[in-house]
């Protein structure tokens, strides 16, 4: 009975998703057909056709999947190290008042600066090639994640800490069995924010100077007045971003089953 209801819910969700894409495609098609935009902008079907054709055909030196992979490689590398650094710093700041007192003012000053503002300095420090891109991706996702890890580590319920102490837990036990599990949902929210920032920064940094990647694809499309190439690049960004967010949501759902209401 419960399974049937669940299956029905999933079916409704899939149908609603298909419906929303169809509506979006229809609006796009109408815009192209019935307005002047259509003179320069390709429609959804033409874009999709080009998208699939470039699985084998090349844009410059690479096919579309190869460009996506090059961007993705930068994103995942920068993001991986950012996640480690953000989790470590967020936990340290939340756990030690001295570290918090020293790091917080600096962090709070740096945090509102948009990561793109660091591009000139990143190029100066790490060169015009991949080094600066890795740094910018790292930095953008790091800034998005630290605050969540910090808040999550601080969120541990004092009542649960008290209960654990009464049951004989020492500081190490309390950290591992109460503080860390309490922080997990916050950390996952931070990881979600971080992956979005990382992906956005990857595209942004590839637009500055690059010979590959989806950002390059979009900016080169613009330079050559090739709107179809731009749209294919944008579509690729959307699909990969959606896939990355879905993977993270899946991992979170698996690890934080206890955080969902209902049986």
């Amino acid at each position: 009975m419960k399974n049937k209801a669940k299956q029905k819910q999933i079916a409704i969700k899939i149908l609603a998703t298909i419906f929303s894409f169809l509506i979006f495609g229809l609006l796009w098609e109408m815009l192209v057909r019935f307005s002047d935009v259509g003179r320069v902008m390709p429609g959804p079907l033409e874009t999709l056709q080009s998208f699939f054709e470039h699985f084998t055909e090349k844009y410059s030196a690479y096919t579309l999947p190869e460009h996506v992979w090059r961007s993705l490689r930068r994103v995942l590398t920068g993001y991986f190290f950012a996640a480690i650094a953000a989790i470590a710093l967020g936990i340290l700041m939340a756990s030690y008042k001295t570290i918090d007192a020293i790091v917080s003012p600096l962090f709070n000053m740096v945090r509102p600066i948009p990561p793109v503002a660091w591009i000139p300095l990143a190029i100066l420090w790490f060169g015009i090639n991949d080094g600066s891109k890795y740094f910018l991706i790292f930095w953008a996702s790091f800034l998005s994640m630290v605050q969540n890890v910090y808040a999550g580590t601080k969120s541990a319920d004092p009542k649960l800490i008290g209960a654990a102490k009464m049951l004989g837990a020492n500081d190490g036990h309390i950290f591992l069995t109460i503080v860390l599990p309490s922080a997990v949902p916050y950390i996952f929210s931070g990881l979600q924010l971080g992956i979005n920032s990382a992906w956005a920064m990857a595209i942004g940094s590839e637009m500055i100077r690059s010979t590959d990647g989806v950002g390059w694809l979009i900016i080169r499309g613009m330079d050559n007045n090739n709107l179809l190439q731009e749209l294919v690049g944008i579509l690729a960004v959307g699909i990969v971003g959606f896939a990355l967010a879905s993977v993270l949501r899946g991992v979170e759902a698996k690890l934080c089953r206890w955080n969902k209401r209902g049986t």
Binding site: K159, L160, G162, A163, I178, V184, C256, W258, N259
Partner: peptide, 9 residues
């Protein structure tokens, strides 16, 4: 304690 103190995870 007066409040529920079961670990939710």
């Amino acid at each position: 304690f007066q409040e529920y103190s079961a670990m939710s995870w």
